[in-house]
Simulated scan of single mutants.
Amino acid sequence: MSAINISPNQPSNNIKTRNTMMNMITLIQTLSKREKQIAMKIMEGLPNKLIAADLFISERTVKFHCANIYRKLNISNRATLMANYYKDLYDMAS
């Protein structure tokens, strides 16, 4: 598998993959600071209750932020969030 080149100065062999990566980068930038913090806690495998305790917020607030994250990234659950995260890491490493 070849590496994905998202540099604007060099052409990509796979334009569709390049555009998808650029869209994901754009989508991630739409997350608020708190949503990014919660997304990282999800990546660590923490459940909502522990995320709430770590960030000193209620579990309901964590669920609210999770819903916003899923909506902004056009995904439906934390498993998809983690899968996309690790897929992007793999794609960048290869």
Rank of each mutant, 00 (worst) to 15 (best):
E44I: 04
L55N: 08
M1V: 06
K33R: 09
T20Y: 13
N48D: 10
T26N: 14
C66I: 12
M43K: 03
T20V: 13
I57T: 11
I75H: 04
S94Q: 07
N68K: 13
I6H: 04
I42K: 02
S12Q: 07
M43F: 08
Y90Q: 03
K16Q: 15
T26E: 13
E35S: 10
S58V: 01
K16D: 14
D91K: 00
R78N: 13
Y90I: 05
L55G: 04
R78T: 12
P47Q: 01
T20P: 01
R71D: 14
I15F: 10
D88V: 12
T20K: 12
T26F: 15
E59Q: 08
I15S: 09
T30G: 06
A79W: 02
T80S: 11
L46N: 09
L73E: 09
L55A: 05
L55Q: 04
T26Y: 15
N13M: 11
D54I: 00
I38S: 07
T61M: 10
L27G: 08
K49S: 15
M82S: 12
T20Q: 14
T30L: 10
L27W: 11
T20W: 15
I28N: 10
M40F: 09
E35D: 09
P11Q: 05
P8F: 08
A53K: 13
I6G: 03
K36L: 08
I38W: 02
Y86F: 13
N74F: 06
N23E: 15
K41Q: 11
A52H: 06
I42E: 03
D88N: 06
I38M: 09
N19Y: 10
I15Y: 09
A3P: 02
D91S: 01
N23M: 15
M24I: 15
T80I: 05
H65S: 05
E59Y: 02
I42C: 01
I51D: 05
A79R: 01
N19T: 08
P11D: 01
A52G: 10
A39G: 11
T61Y: 13
I51P: 00
K16W: 14
M1G: 07
S12C: 12
M82H: 06
I38E: 13
N77Y: 06
F64Y: 15
R60H: 07
C66H: 03
K16Y: 15
Q37I: 00
A52V: 04
I28A: 05
